[in-house]
Design a protein around this nucleic acid. Structure first.
Lengths: 249, 249
DNA sequence: CGCCCATTTGACAGCTTTCAAATCGCGTGG
DNA sequence: CCACGCGATTTGAAAGCTGTCAAATGGGCG
């Protein structure tokens, strides 16, 4: 009866099904979760660090980011979330949010009560397993970012995150691997890789000058994927998208 | 009948019980997991990046670290594990290890077959929930390290990791918050925070010179915890040890 | 057309790295 | 007990990458 293609929570079932087999009942239970839809404007705070997270969020459209603000005033972005992502499993399962979640662009979010998510996760092992794996993949991306920021030069860091977005945006159906729209300012990009906006700008210019990418506004075109991945030391394994048919252009 | 204080797998039940209530059957099932004990020497590789992880590991004594080696030759340490930690839940649940696990000191490890862990996690929801939370806390620490490396100065980074070890070592019963033995060389410490060994040494010297810490070999004595945590911008919330009775000296 | 914010550029300071060499601690062997 | 040897720690000097500060340019929108 329900059209699972357009049901508000259907992106979640698609994503979770990547991590394990979900039967019809599992999917139905996911789609039957209670939720409230809301539209958020850019920079609007979805989850505030330090507060008890009462809801889990499913990102339906647009982008969000996780961030920490440090005492020295610095902002560090911890992850970028894309449509279909369960934005807040980690915060809502642990008792208190250890980081904030903010709207990067205008976006549509479905808020699901924390208890309903937990109940479903433990009533239906397949769903729980898929959710667990989803958080494990998030952790894998955190590790990749630690290595990126800790041990790569500015140029390599920028190249790496450009590669990551290429793969993830294509997987989310929001661009092609060799051409996509960066959903953020250079200042936010800098906050992702631990650089200043000024230096981020210079590295983008250099990558363009060296013929690895082309830019127009925030649109990124990857001119030389092999050379870009080589300078970035990019290996998509950490994204755990081991599905067939992810060709390199 | 079994002495759960000395049973090889008992540290795991203690740790997991922090994240949720485990009844007697849950504990018994955990202790009944099949395992192989092994002693590893420093720098011995426990899990190799890129390989299929067939076992989960429980660290019984000693320390291990997770690492990634980059194409430019750099080494980035992603986490330090302490006795009682499930060293390899993430690698063994995802299909292929996206990072290596290495013995930091001589250590005793119990290898548990991956299938047995998974089976238990999904047979006993309380155990599965505790394991899931354990991986979520790991992820929280990854996020804290991203912020540490990305947006703090060298001095702040070193101060921060000294604070983290103080809290975690005390929680593990391996030192006091104001005096503990650092289980690694300055070179490894540098690999944790994305600095060179030389600069790490200078920052340690400065912190000592400024009266925040005292050192003798690898023994760290925290002289001024309030000032150290202030310069580190250290808030232990990300460790999710919200248990009563964790006083600040 | 004019305003506002993001992007871009220049010059310079400064933090961190690099490269070398000296010192220290500790286990081993005389 | 003391000398030796090796790895870890420590220090110095200089280079270089990245940050800071300011100003110019550019694009979108009222």
């Amino acid at each position: 009866m329900t059209d699972t293609q357009t049901a508000p929570l259907s992106p979640m079932t698609r994503k979770l099904a990547l991590w394990g087999v979900l039967d019809a009942d599992d999917r139905a239970a996911l789609l039957a979760l209670p939720y409230t839809l809301r539209t958020m404007e850019p920079e609007e705070i979805i989850v505030q660090e330090g507060q008890k997270a009462t809801h889990s969020c499913l990102l339906r459209s647009g982008f969000t980011y996780r961030q920490t603000i440090l005492a020295n005033g610095g902002r560090q972005i911890l992850a970028i979330n894309m449509p279909g992502d369960m934005v807040d499993l980690q915060n809502s399962l642990l008792h208190v949010a250890d980081h904030s979640v903010v709207a990067l662009t205008r976006c549509a979010v479905a808020f699901i009560p924390r208890e309903a998510v937990l109940e479903l996760a433990f009533d239906r092992p397949a769903v729980g397993k898929a959710m667990w794996f989803d958080t494990l993949v998030d952790a894998s991306m955190f590790r990749a970012w630690i290595a990126n920021i800790g041990r790569r030069t500015a140029r390599e860091r920028i190249a790496h995150i450009i590669c990551e977005f290429a793969i993830r945006l294509e997987a989310a159906g929001l661009g092609r691997q060799n051409h996509y729209e960066l959903p953020m300012s250079q200042e936010r990009l800098a906050d992702c890789v631990g650089l200043t906006p000024v230096h981020t700008n210079r590295m983008l210019r250099d990558l363009e000058h060296d013929g690895l990418i082309d830019r127009a506004q925030r649109s990124i075109r990857i001119v030389d994927w092999p050379r870009l991945t080589a300078t970035a030391d990019f290996d998509p394994a950490y994204l755990h998208m081991n599905r067939p048919g992810m060709p390199q252009p």
